[in-house]
């Protein structure tokens, strides 16, 4: 079921052509849509363009939105497929690193080292590590941990099976921990040289 508030605004747009009501929906979902596009596209300008396109497309296709799913699921789905389209059109893999699943990391020490960093520095490190993830992994991690969607809901968005997502999430977690270790180590080396 769609949240009642969303449905109220959707009805206002469909019945009265009230474009102003759409402003509410844009403001409510722009952060997540932009975040998802950013995680997949990994470029601010292009992600902004895509996020705008997503809302434009959603506006024109609003009459096709059926209230049986959440509006958020629907708009994340548009974001996911629009970003995929873009990536396919570019015909290139975004500069993600490949890393073995069996990457070495020692969780308590990664956690400790991160905790000792300044907040800004810590965010920068985490952002860089997520940026290294392949687009789909970054999307799954973001939807699951930031938006706190269940695997079933992510499955509705991506059309991937719950089992596939489970495997992907498991792998992405390990990868992310590995990337964080790498980032922290390279930062430490840089700082060591400076001091």
């Amino acid at each position: 079921m769609s949240q009642p508030e969303d449905q109220y605004y959707i009805d206002a747009i469909l019945k009265n052509g009230d474009a102003g009501a759409f402003e509410f929906l844009v403001n409510r979902y722009k952060h997540m849509v932009f975040t998802l596009a950013m995680k997949m596209i990994k470029n601010t300008e292009e992600a902004e363009e895509i996020a705008q396109d997503v809302f434009l497309k959603a506006y024109h296709a609003l009459d096709k939105f059926k209230g049986d799913a959440k509006f958020s699921t629907w708009i994340y789905k548009i974001t996911y497929f629009r970003s995929l389209d873009y990536i396919k059109k570019q015909k290139r893999h975004l500069h993600t690193s490949s890393i073995d699943d069996e990457v070495e990391y020692h969780l308590p020490s990664v956690d400790n080292t991160l905790a000792r960093l300044e907040a800004d520095e810590r965010k920068k490190t985490i952002r860089k590590a997520i940026g290294n993830l392949p687009e789909n992994d970054a999307l799954v991690i973001t939807l699951h941990y930031l938006e706190e969607l269940s695997l079933k809901e992510i499955s509705d968005i991506t059309n991937l099976s719950v089992n596939t997502l489970k495997v992907r999430l498991f792998r992405s977690r390990k990868r992310l921990a590995g990337f964080l270790t790498n980032e922290l180590e390279s930062d430490m080396l840089e700082n060591y040289g400076r001091e």
Partner: peptide, 30 residues
């Protein structure tokens, strides 16, 4: 532990901030 750690990290990073004129840009496109 890994699950908790990743959740904590991703939450701390939070949402990416779209530019301040984002909503206006969408509405003017519409």
């Amino acid at each position: 532990e890994l699950d908790d750690f990743i959740r904590k990290s991703v939450k701390e990073l939070g949402f990416e901030q779209p530019p301040s004129n984002f909503t206006d840009a969408v509405l003017s496109k519409i």
